[in-house]
Write a protein that binds this DNA or RNA. Sequence first.
DNA 1: TTACATCGTGTTGAATATACACATTATCTT
DNA 2: AAGATAATGTGTATATTCAACACGATGTAA
Lengths: 232, 232
Amino acid sequence: MEVKLPEFDSVFSIDCVIFGFDAGELKILLIERNEEPFKDWLALPGYIVEQNESIDTAAERILYELTGLRDLHMEQFHTFGEVNRHPQGRVITVAYYALIRINGQKELRPVTQYAKKAFWHPVNELPKLAFDHSEIFKTGFNKIRRRLSYQPIAFELLPEKFTLTQLQMLYEAILNKKLDKRNFRKKMLSYGFLKELDEKQKGVSYRAAKLYKFDKRKYTKIFQNELTTVES
Amino acid sequence: MEVKLPEFDSVFSIDCVIFGFDAGELKILLIERNEEPFKDWLALPGYIVEQNESIDTAAERILYELTGLRDLHMEQFHTFGEVNRHPQGRVITVAYYALIRINGQKELRPVTQYAKKAFWHPVNELPKLAFDHSEIFKTGFNKIRRRLSYQPIAFELLPEKFTLTQLQMLYEAILNKKLDKRNFRKKMLSYGFLKELDEKQKGVSYRAAKLYKFDKRKYTKIFQNELTTVES
DNA sequence: TTACATCGTGTTGAATATACACATTATCTT
DNA sequence: AAGATAATGTGTATATTCAACACGATGTAA
């Protein structure tokens, strides 16, 4: 080390926008804060990056500590660096998102004291969130919307077996518009990564729909072809 | 301030991937470093964010200091946060890109001592760069490639008046493939944001081509309509 | 005047996207 | 068991977009 890096009172943090889909509604994961500033406020799960961990690792750890959720594939989508976004000092935050299945089983249980609890909240009618988290959410939501229109990322939100109507409802929830049933089905099936199962929906009081499953192998094959990247 | 933020020996930095187009070639802006580490290496223009400036402001300042360029519209595209990406400590860097006109007039002249010089270098055959800058460049290049396929961002690289052939050559340089002349023209003109001028190319030893100009007003109108964003 | 280099232009067929309605099926109720 | 209910599952016609493809016109230079 020939030159010392300057020492500022500044830190990095991670905030996570985790989308889930349940009961026909799109939701995100919020925590209730148990720490100042913004104690008792609702906020995105987020915390400070340790000095010896990469930001991707930090994102996983932080989400786990605040919500008990693990092993989800998150991706960074934007970095927020306004000077006064944190009242206690300079904090630049890297925002990540993920789409996951809300599974009745999975309990949301913070493993640190920083969060009182973690829970799913519908994306419509979100309350005001701590810090600039409302803006972070909005940016993230717009990202996945746009992404959904050219990449089939919706499957990550659905249970393993799902009906085409469920899939369509999810698209409609994210894109916030009605889609045509026949055209939607035609298009989805034409991709070739939906596998029709020999099984039907259970427990509905009307004609049960066929269940489908997402064929990841075919999906990645198709998806890869669409990306042209430089390697050199 | 009730709780103090932790004090790590960690800093934010900004790195800029600035694209230009000249003599039919796509280029990026590099500097020759005048500081350890990586003294004398080629690198992307980049430096440390001050405590009292937002990252967007920092990006502008840093680019100016290292290259003399001002007032360009940069956008962040990714944040690099591996633990050991900087040999002197923990440095997380937010990468920005911009597309600009290389103007014969504009001198590239660093105003700080951190860079010995700044210059344009063709994106093909880039040498190994300092830090993880080769990777940052690659990520940025892939970003603009993908972006070019759904947003007409190429105009930012061309002189104010340009021919359709020049525009096509630029697309071909970025996308790295040949395009069909007639289809390309048809499509570009169909957008309606190209304004045909009453002027022709000068100084060529063959039939001169018509000059066009980019109509920013129409462009933004069309462009806005394509984005559906959430506001609430 | 001739050679050269690039400009500028249209059509056709294929693929994709859009608009649109009703008979079928399983369940529930009486 | 008959009828009501609620959602499933399916096809066609039209418009739009994309892809492939070649050559005469024009200006410059020798």
